[in-house]
């Protein structure tokens, strides 16, 4: 049951991820990416990380991708097609990446990876209480510093995105 679910989600994830980069229409790409995020959220639930799974949805699907969709609609982008002159480049990079990925996968497939045993296993780690405790005690400083990042990003996004006086285009 769980296995089938895993394989189904994985299949869907890979398929939609592929479609992200293969779709000609950026809107379709966005939608496929959202689908990928959903499957990943599914995986997180499988992995007992409920909090992250829902945060993944809220942040990625709910905020980031909306922003993407928003921008694409805003810019009214046309289809982006693969041109012949770059075909070799595409094929080449595809080949290289897949070879490398294949090698890594072959290596990883059989690699022994240490996992927790019964005695050390704690099914509650993915729960929000637990994560919150870790986040607000051990990682408080980086967490606070992320706010600097946000402030900076906010200022920057406003600064760059703002239309200047006299600019005609939207």
């Amino acid at each position: 049951m769980v296995q089938n679910l895993f394989y189904f989600l994985s299949f869907l994830a890979v398929l939609s991820a592929l479609m992200v980069i293969l779709s000609k229409n950026p809107i379709h790409s966005v939608l496929y990416l959202i689908l990928t995020f959903f499957t990943l959220s599914g995986h997180y639930i499988l992995l007992n990380a409920q909090f992250l799974s829902i945060v993944n949805l809220i942040v990625y699907a709910g905020a980031i991708m909306v922003l993407f969709l928003f921008t694409i609609m805003f810019l009214n982008l046309k289809d982006d097609s693969f041109t012949g002159s770059r075909l070799f480049f595409h094929l080449g990079s595809g080949l290289v990446v897949f070879t490398l990925a294949g090698l890594i996968i072959l290596k990883v497939a059989t690699a022994p990876i240490a996992v927790a045993d019964d005695a050390h296993f704690d099914s509650q780690i993915g729960m929000v209480e637990n994560l919150g405790k870790v986040l607000y005690s051990k990682f408080l400083v980086p967490f606070e510093l992320v706010s600097v990042l946000f402030l900076s990003a906010m200022v920057g996004a406003v600064m760059l995105g703002r239309r200047e006086k006299g600019e005609k285009n939207f």
């Binding site: 909090f51 829902i54 945060v55 949805l57 809220i58 699907a61 709910g62």
Partner: peptide, 14 residues
Amino acid sequence: VNIGILYVFGLVSL
């Protein structure tokens, strides 16, 4: 679910 309200938000944002 223990994150019920987040679930609501997730869906609302979708």
